[in-house]
Amino acid sequence: MWKGVLPAVTTKFKEDGSLDHEEMTRCFQIQMDAGVDGLIACGSLGEGPMLSQDERIEVFKLCKAVSGDKPSLLTVAEAATRDACALAEKAAKAGADGLMVVPSTIYHTDPRETVATLKAIAQAGDLPIMIYSNRLAYRVDVTVEIMEQLAKDARFVAVKESSDDIRRSTEIINRFGDRFDLLTGVDNLAFEALSIGAIGWVAGLCLAFPDETVAIYRLVQAGRYKEALDIYRWFRPLLDLDVSTYLVQNIKLAEALAIGSNERVRAPRLPLAGERRAKVEQVIKSAIACRPKLPALA
């Protein structure tokens, strides 16, 4: 159902902290013009937990308006299952093509609770679901054994694999074949995951460098691994910025420098400052200065 490059878009704010619809529309269109295969709203990178449910639906609707006939998904990541189910229902009414679902953002569910939570959200929204498995950020590991239980429900169609263990991707394929669409969610493991069978990339640095991200994906799919790897090696210092407590600030700074956007974030986050900012800015500017020429794509 879902494959290709699906950027997890950032949420843009005006100086007064309100949603900046115009800037989001502009940035989302840059992604679509580069050839991405869909958009995902209000994930970790989209500061979803800092937004009200109504704001998240607003951001999703902007994604949907820009993505056209390509899928737009809304992230469901709530502390309480009740609230997650309510958001899933709102997403369905707003026309979501699917949901990317995190089990819980506060309480670290055990396997039985994880299955119950995910099934409840699926029932509430009645939409296709991408299971977001990120044991590092969210402390809940959606294991292969848990996926086995969820596989009986046809609404669970995909897995965003973010365990940070590349072996997990092979384990999922070995256990389920093509039952789940397997997408990588770790930018600096993307080439590795795509090379061993992932069919999609939920991407972060794509927001600042969409052409390079799309090129890597398409080249791998065409079996042109050497060309993809050359770009990936250039890209790697940038991709490392996605694997950080400060991924939102890092990537918004990259957007500011690469596509002329802004760095505004919602408190308690603050834009990068001091030595940390200087280091990230150097990484971004150095990459821009030696940006590779991209090969022709089919």
Rank of each mutant, 00 (worst) to 15 (best):
E15L: 09
E15C: 03
E15M: 04
E15P: 02
D16R: 01
D16W: 00
D16N: 08
G17C: 01
G17N: 01
G17L: 02
S18P: 00
L19G: 02
D20P: 01
E22H: 02
E23D: 06
E23G: 05
M24N: 06
M24P: 03
M24T: 06
M24R: 08
T25A: 14
T25V: 10
T25F: 05
R26C: 08
R26H: 10
C27R: 14
Q29L: 10
I30K: 11
I30A: 10
Q31S: 14
Q31P: 12
D33E: 15
A34Y: 12
G35H: 13
V36Y: 09
V36D: 07
D37S: 14
D37N: 15
G38C: 11
G38E: 13
L39R: 08
L39I: 09
I40S: 02
C42H: 04
G43V: 00
L45M: 06
G46V: 03
E47H: 07
E47D: 03
G48Y: 03
G48S: 05
P49S: 01
L51F: 05
Q53P: 02
Q53T: 04
Q53E: 13
D54N: 11
D54T: 12
I57H: 07
I57F: 05
E58S: 14
V59A: 14
F60D: 11
F60K: 11
K61S: 14
C63L: 07
C63F: 07
C63K: 07
C63H: 08
K64L: 12
A65W: 05
A65K: 15
V66C: 09
V66T: 12
S67V: 05
S67E: 08
S67P: 06
S67M: 13
D69E: 15
D69N: 15
K70L: 15
P71N: 11
P71E: 07
S72H: 10
L73W: 03
L74G: 04
T75G: 05
V76G: 02
